[in-house]
Simulated assay, not measured.
Amino acid sequence: MDFDEQLRRYFGTSDMAAVPPAAREAGIEHMRVDLGLAAQPAQRFVLWALLHTLGSAPDLDVAFKDESEREAARNLMDLLGAADREE
């Protein structure tokens, strides 16, 4: 899954600065629905990661039933947090 492709799918553009607030909320809601319906772990992770970067991800225990998937999500959060601190 390509990041820009996912942004275009849910928001109609890969430029998040150009997305009006109502369209942003609608795209996030669409992603949350797709996350709930996703059967493949990789697809669920990608959707959760995008939601996380937008500040709208569900809690790990809600998003992932498997502990290894929750651990992968924690690792991503740690990596993103470290990158933010370096800026």
Rank of each mutant, 00 (worst) to 15 (best):
M1E: 12
M1Y: 12
M1G: 13
F3E: 15
D4C: 09
D4I: 06
E5V: 13
Q6P: 01
Q6R: 08
L7F: 05
R8P: 08
R8N: 11
R8I: 14
R9F: 02
R9S: 03
R9C: 02
Y10L: 01
Y10K: 00
F11Q: 00
F11R: 00
F11A: 00
F11Y: 00
T13G: 06
T13H: 05
S14L: 04
S14I: 01
S14T: 05
D15T: 09
D15Y: 05
D15S: 08
D15L: 09
M16C: 09
M16E: 11
M16Q: 14
V19D: 02
P20A: 13
P20M: 08
P21K: 10
P21N: 07
P21R: 11
P21D: 12
A23D: 15
A23E: 14
A23N: 07
R24L: 14
R24I: 05
R24Y: 13
E25G: 07
A26Y: 07
A26W: 06
A26Q: 09
G27T: 00
I28L: 05
E29R: 13
E29Q: 14
E29T: 12
E29N: 12
H30V: 03
R32G: 06
R32S: 07
V33T: 12
D34F: 00
L35V: 05
L35I: 04
L35E: 01
L35N: 01
G36P: 14
L37N: 14
L37M: 15
L37V: 05
L37E: 15
L37D: 13
A39V: 14
Q40V: 08
Q40K: 09
Q40W: 07
Q40P: 03
Q43W: 13
Q43G: 10
Q43V: 13
R44K: 13
R44D: 06
R44C: 06
R44Y: 08
R44M: 10
F45A: 12
V46P: 04
V46C: 13
V46I: 11
L47R: 02
L47Q: 03
W48Q: 02
A49N: 09
A49L: 09
A49C: 07
A49T: 08
L50A: 05
H52K: 11
H52R: 13
H52S: 11
T53C: 13
T53M: 14
L54Y: 04
L54K: 02
L54R: 04
L54I: 04
G55N: 10
G55R: 08
S56P: 01
P58F: 02
P58K: 03
P58G: 03
D59R: 12
D59C: 04
D59S: 10
L60N: 07
D61P: 01
D61E: 14
V62F: 05
A63G: 02
A63V: 01
F64N: 08
F64M: 08
K65V: 07
K65E: 09
K65Q: 07
D66E: 11
D66K: 10
D66N: 10
D66I: 10
S68D: 14
S68C: 08
R70Y: 15
E71D: 15
A72T: 10
A72P: 03
A73S: 13
R74I: 05
R74A: 11
R74V: 07
N75Q: 15
L76T: 02
M77N: 02
M77H: 03
D78N: 11
G81Y: 08
G81I: 04
A82R: 13
A82N: 12
A83S: 15
A83T: 04
A83D: 12
D84T: 07
D84C: 05
R85Q: 12
E86F: 04
E86P: 00
E87H: 11
